[in-house]
Every structure is written in structure tokens, then in C-alpha cells.
Amino acid sequence: MADMSLPPLQIGGYSLESRLIMGTGGITDLAALEAALVQSGTTLTTVAMRRYSPETKTSVFSMLERLGIDVLPNTAGCYTVRDTLLTAELAREALETDLIKVEVIADEHTLLPDVIETLEATEQLAERGFTPLVYTTDDPAAARRLESAGAAAVMPLGSPIGTGLGILNPHNIELICSRASVPVVLDAGIGTASEAAAAIELGCDAVLVASAVTRAQDPTAMAEGMRLAVEAGFHSARAGRIPKRQHALASSPMEGRIDLT
């Protein structure tokens, strides 16, 4: 059998082994989260940066460290360049990584990215030596601007965070992927495994999934589904699909049929 293992993905100076990036929010049972993360095969998982409290302690960080999963700190909750930069600096110091998921939102109702603030933050973070993975809209023009500003990966949303609406504008995602010279990670909106496969088929190099797994009725089963979907999408994208046709094309020969009179 041919070796079909997926090659690692290079994001700046970082080598991503699994193309399924996971989130850790949306689940209170840490043991269930751990089971889902292990099942997903992920090697990079997001965390948020918040004030230390006796309740939270450092349990997520310790768990990821124990599982050998790299942390991808995000700047969730940031609205401006200023709080994004400070959050990123704190994350780099606390977690000893240059990776940062840049997430600058416009308002708490839509959680949509504020592309203007995001662009400025990306530029400054790149100058400060970070490896910015940048959450953005599905706007192909914005994706190119972010790339020029120093994004190591662009992460367009399929649909708003936590909605599970899937990929609302597949044409835009495909356009972003076809013109990008940095990796594209589909971030936000995925609700089920077929949508993760579709993202990869559209040309995305990886997907980021949080709520779809952590809020599923059986997070471990969904983690397995997502893992397989990313692999399936990768192979089918690489395989070169058949063109779509107007009319049927028989795959069995017409000659030699039995003749009933």
C-alpha cells in the first residue's frame, strides 16, 4: 500500500505535524477535553490568556504540556491593536512560544474580525518577531493585505465563531487559497466533519476546530470524525477530481449486453 501519511505544514519557522488545529473552549469537563484532543491527533491547540485565578490555575497549560501538544495562544477578547500587542507579549513570555493567533474582534455580538485593527496588529507583531496566524474575514483582498503585513498564515472564517454554519462563501475561500503564498487555515464556523473535508478540498492547508468538537454531544467521536475528514479532504484534493458534466457518462461498456426479444 502506498504511504499516504500527510506531510507536515510549514508555518513560518514552525512545522505543523497535524493539519487539524484544535481549540479548548466550550467544554467544562477537562477529562473529556483531553480524550477529544488525543483522539483528534492534533499537535497544536489554542488557549486564551486571562488573569491567574485560584480556580483556573494553570491546568490547561499543564495538560497540553503533558500530552506533548504545542500551544497556540490567541488574543481572543481583544478589540484594539494595543490590547492585542500586550496580550501577545504576555503569551510569549508565559508560554515561551512565538506563535500567536491574532484575533481582533469588532463587537461581541458577531465576533467578526476587525480587519483594520487586525492588519495593524499583524504588522507590529511580525516586526516584534512573532509568528502571526491571523484570523480574518473571508475577504480575498484582506487576506492578501495580511500576508504582505507579515502574516505567517491567514485564517479566514467559514462563518462566524461558534455558529456551525459551515463555509458560507466557498468561492471566496477557494480564491484566497489559490492566491496565497502562506498557508491558509480555515478558522471558525465548521459544524461537522464534511465541512472540514470541504475546506481542505477548496485548497486550505489546515483547519481549526473548537466548538464543533467541544460542544458536540460526543466530543471524542466528533474529534475522530474531524481527524478523518481532514485526511480525506487532503487526499481527494491531491487526487484531482473529475470534471463536472451536464449529462451522464456510462462507466460500463454498452457492447456485449444480453439481448432479450
Partner: peptide, 10 residues
């Protein structure tokens, strides 16, 4: 002072 750590998120 702000003293921060990683929590679940994203």
C-alpha cells in the same frame, strides 16, 4: 500588576 496564564479558549 497583571498576572496572567493560559486558560481554555479558541
Amino acid at each position: 500588576l497583571e498576572i496572567v496564564t493560559a486558560v481554555q479558549g479558541g
